[in-house]
Design a protein around this nucleic acid. Structure first.
Lengths: 148, 148
DNA sequence: CGGTATCCGTACGGATACTG
DNA sequence: CAGTATCCGTACGGATACCG
């Protein structure tokens, strides 16, 4: 029911996997996957990218208000990382008081599309995930009866 | 050059973004995105999924050998999380010595496809990212001349 | 306004030893 | 073999204070 819709694509997937997993010249070692995952792993990158993609161009404190709960420090750090990786553009205007605007680069928008895909997947599969957790929790209960 | 291939898809993207970013009933609060990102954020989940997807079914120590550098503890923790979320299936055989086999569930394979997409994106865009970093590093040099 | 600099608690993950 | 238990260092991120 799930393995029949894909046919020749299966091989393709396996090949892609092989390529990702191959040791030295692969996608893991130098920059690619590990780095991209790092951008996803820190607490605020994805959220910042979402908001920049949504709003277009934002000043530092405008973005700060939108990314709920982020500290000034972490917004700075996050934006620096994104800028460093070429996902975000930083434009500073030599005025007083200073004005700094951030926006996604073309690369950033490209990455945003991947994030949205991920978000869509998550939204679409949130139900089975939640169910799985409930089942897991239930099994934990019966496995350790003395706990309760 | 990059904004012309997508036309009516642009609105669609924006709408998806809105949906992802909307506060309470959105994708962020309950389970979805935040949780999925959590799976991506820990150090070993993605890699473990890749290897399970590549190999099919693996015993604990087989997987351990493949996931280079992972400790016994972290493999256990990682697999528990993945099992909890319904991405990995754990099958235990009551033998001596014990044998435990892990494999991706249908949901896990579905997620793997997303990971591969991400990997492909990363591989495909690793060049501009690396270049961006070099530029950033170069700008740092000139900005802080006293450092050198 | 848009940052740095500093301090500090916590959570993640590694190493090691032990167990059914 | 496949874990669990324990200890322990580090890195991530929050709070606060200060600066151009």
């Amino acid at each position: 029911m799930d393995g029949t819709i894909v046919d020749s694509q299966q091989d393709s997937l396996q090949k892609k996997l092989k390529k990702i997993l191959e040791p030295t010249p692969g996608v893991l070692a130098p920059c690619p996957i590990r780095d991209i995952l790092d951008r996803l792993s820190d607490k605020w990158s994805a959220l910042s990218i979402f908001h920049l993609g949504d709003a277009g161009t934002l000043r530092f404190n405008e973005l700060r208000k939108r990314v709920d709960g982020i500290s000034q420090r972490m917004l700075t750090v996050t934006l620096r990382n994104l800028e460093r990786d070429g996902l975000v553009n930083r434009r500073m205007y030599p005025e007083i008081p200073p004005r700094v605007e951030y926006e996604l680069t073309a690369l950033g928008h490209s990455f945003l599309r991947q994030l949205i895909e991920l978000g869509e997947w998550a939204a679409h599969h949130s139900d089975p995930i939640m169910k799985a957790r409930e089942r897991y929790a239930a099994r934990e209960q019966e496995a350790v009866p003395g706990k309760w």
